[in-house]
Amino acid sequence: MHFPRFAAASMLLLSAAPLSAQDLATTCHATSSYDVTLNADSVVFDRATPAPSRVEIQRGLLRTDGVTVRLNAENQDRMTLFERDLRALAPRVRAVAQNGVDMAVQAVRAEASSMHLSAATRAELDQRLSDHARELKQRIAASRSTHDWNGDAINQYANQIAGDLMPLIASDMGQQAIDAALNGDLQAASALRDQAAGLATQIQPRLLRRMQALRPQIQSLCPSIEALSELQEGVRTSTGQPLDLIQTKQ
């Protein structure tokens, strides 16, 4: 998806929400074909295909596609620990994601400071970024399912943020171009128009480089994810398949 002008900012805010699968795959070499939901009394993994499409873990009990799996004592303990450790990991993931939102906002503000925006535009931009960051962090805190961060939901929210930020930045840069033209500086006017037109492609790599500072925090989650992967080893579904909720590759 390509957004014009300053829409890269909205994607950077959302890149922190709650740690995309790409972040974990790249940093922790961890992937899953499932979405996961933390209910009050159970943990549910679900996907469209292949079977099993629904795996439920509840205090040492395991159900796959509605069928209770007969587990020996060791595997019951494994599932109990898996659920406990997954629940313990969730607030840590949220904390890193919220730190990522703060970092993204700082990166956007730093980039905006080089655009020579008017004082009024800078103040308005700062307020809007703060509002979006606060809302996004609230959504992260309330989220209990990866379904909240799937493609359509992310894209819709990104479009909302972009729709709020883009006109503000475009208007200011457009006014700068007009002022330059009125002052007879046609070269500056042309450069400003080119900068506005290519802003998304210019700013996104710089913002992403700034966000690399979040990587150590993501790395701190990797041992716990690896431990979850190890806990599922040897456990099988009701049809005899390996459970395979999380895949890790070192």
Score class of each variant (00 low, 15 high):
184 G>V: 11
69 V>F: 03
200 A>K: 12
63 R>Y: 14
123 A>N: 12
38 L>V: 09
103 M>I: 01
231 L>K: 04
2 H>E: 15
19 L>R: 00
201 T>E: 14
141 A>I: 05
194 D>Y: 12
196 A>C: 15
120 A>V: 08
171 S>E: 10
221 L>D: 00
221 L>C: 02
38 L>A: 08
211 M>Q: 08
78 R>K: 08
112 A>Q: 01
201 T>S: 13
64 T>L: 03
49 T>V: 15
64 T>P: 01
236 R>H: 10
222 C>N: 05
72 N>F: 07
8 A>D: 12
108 V>F: 00
51 A>W: 12
9 A>D: 02
128 R>D: 10
134 R>T: 14
157 Y>T: 01
27 T>Q: 07
118 S>F: 06
159 N>M: 13
71 L>M: 01
73 A>I: 12
239 T>W: 11
245 L>W: 02
42 S>V: 09
160 Q>Y: 15
210 R>C: 01
45 F>A: 00
129 L>C: 03
57 I>Y: 01
63 R>D: 11
124 E>G: 10
239 T>N: 13
63 R>A: 08
181 A>S: 09
60 G>C: 11
126 D>A: 05
133 A>Q: 02
222 C>H: 02
195 Q>M: 10
147 H>K: 13
95 A>Y: 04
67 V>I: 11
147 H>V: 11
125 L>F: 05
165 L>K: 01
116 H>G: 09
26 T>G: 14
25 A>G: 07
91 P>I: 09
80 T>C: 13
47 R>E: 06
117 L>T: 03
234 G>P: 05
12 L>I: 04
112 A>Y: 00
153 A>Y: 12
196 A>I: 11
100 G>M: 01
